[in-house]
C-alpha cells in the first residue's frame, strides 16, 4: 500500500504544484490519477520514487517513509514506464530490458533469460531483441518500456501517460495488454492519464484531480459515472454534454435483434443487444477488477 499524508510541493518560485494531498493507494490494484495538464498528477506520482521530494508531508510505502530511503535504491525497486517509452536510444531492445537488473547485480545470463521471458509476456517477438529503439514502431517501443518496467519484478509499477503518444488502435491494444498482464501479475499500479476513458477502462480506483493536486472525486469508475461529485467531474467525464447518457435510437432501424445507441447529442456510439425487443443485463465485473482474492494482502505493495 502507498499512502500520501498531507503532501505539498511548492517550487522555489512559489508555484504550488500540489497542496495538502492525501491518498491511499491499495496494493495489487490499478489506481488511475486523472486530470488535465497542470493538475499535479505526474508530480504526485513522481513523489513515490523520489523523482520529486515533497516540501511537506510524507509518502509511505508499506508504512516506510520514502524520504528515509536512498533514492537510487528506491527507484531500482519500482517499475517506471513513461510516455515515449524513455528507452535508451543507444542500447538494443534486450539491453534496455536488462539494464536495471544489471545495475542491481543480476548476472548477464540471468538478466537475458528473464528479458526474453518478458518480451514474450508483453507480446514482442524474440527477433526484435537486437534492434535499436528507433527501429521499432511506437507501439513496440511502449511494449519494450513495459517489459523494462517489469524487469526487476517490482511490486509497484508507475505508469506516466504511457500510451498517450501512440495511435488509438495501438493504444487500445496496449491497454488490453495492461489488463491482461495485471490479471496475471497483480502489481500495485499507479497510472497517470488525462484520458477519462482510459481511466475508466483501467482503474480499479480512479482519482480525479484538479489544479494543485486537489482531489475532486475518488472511487470506482461506476461510482464516479453514476454520481459525479462536482460540475467539474461531470464535465470531465462528459456527462454534462450527454456523452455518457445513452438512449436507444428510435429512428435507426434495428439490425436483427440489435439496436443502435445514441448519446445525449444524438450521435451514434454503439450497438446494444435487444433479443425480442428486451435489453439484456451484462456482467458488471470487468477483467481488471477480478483479482479480488488478492485484495487483503496488506504489506506487500
Amino acid at each position: 500500500m502507498i499512502e500520501f499524508r498531507s503532501v505539498s510541493k511548492t517550487y522555489q518560485d512559489g508555484t504550488a504544484a500540489v497542496e495538502d494531498f492525501s491518498l491511499e493507494i491499495p496494493a495489487r490494484r490499478i489506481t488511475v490519477l486523472v486530470g488535465s495538464s497542470g493538475s499535479g498528477k505526474t508530480t504526485v506520482m513522481r513523489m513515490i520514487n523520489r523523482m520529486v521530494d515533497p516540501t511537506s508531508g510524507t509518502v509511505e510505502i508499506d508504512g516506510v517513509d520514502v524520504a528515509t530511503r536512498e533514492p537510487v535504491q528506491l527507484r531500482r525497486g519500482i517499475g517506471y514506464i513513461m510516455q515515449n517509452s524513455g528507452l535508451l536510444p543507444h542500447r538494443s531492445v534486450l539491453d534496455n530490458i536488462t539494464t536495471v537488473p544489471r545495475l542491481t547485480g543480476v548476472s548477464k545470463a540471468d538478466a537475458r533469460r528473464r528479458a526474453f521471458e518478458l518480451m514474450e509476456v508483453v507480446g514482442l517477438e524474440r527477433s526484435l531483441a537486437d534492434r535499436y529503439p528507433s527501429q521499432l514502431s511506437g507501439g513496440q517501443q511502449q511494449r519494450v518500456g513495459v517489459a523494462r518496467g517489469l524487469a526487476v519484478d517490482p511490486n509497484i509499477l508507475l505508469m506516466d501517460e504511457p500510451f498517450s503518444a501512440v495511435d488509438p488502435i495501438v493504444r487500445d491494444e496496449l491497454q488490453q495488454e495492461v489488463l491482461r498482464i495485471q490479471a496475471e501479475l497483480a502489481k500495485t499500479i499507479v497510472f497517470v492519464s488525462h484520458d477519462i476513458d482510459e481511466a475508466f477502462l483501467l482503474g480499479d480506483q480512479v482519482v480525479v484531480l484538479e489544479r494543485g493536486g486537489h482531489i475532486v472525486q475518488q472511487g470506482t469508475p461506476t461510482e464516479i459515472l453514476a454520481n459525479p461529485a462536482t460540475d467539474f467531474v461531470a464535465t470531465f467525464i462528459g456527462a454534462e454534454r450527454g456523452k455518457r447518457r445513452l438512449v436507444v435510437s428510435d429512428s435507426t432501424p434495428a439490425i436483427g435483434d440489435d439496436r443502435v445507441l445514441v448519446d445525449g447529442g444524438g450521435y451514434p456510439v454503439g450497438i446494444i443487444a435487444a433479443p425480442g425487443g428486451r435489453l439484456e443485463a451484462g456482467n458488471p465485473n470487468p477483467k481488471s477488477r477480478s483479482v479480488s482474492n488478492k485484495t487483503d494482502q496488506a504489506g506487500d505493495a
Partner: peptide, 10 residues
C-alpha cells in the same frame, strides 16, 4: 527525457 528516464529507473 532520456536522462530523466535513466534517473527514474535507478
Amino acid at each position: 527525457d532520456v536522462v530523466s528516464s535513466a534517473t527514474s529507473i535507478g
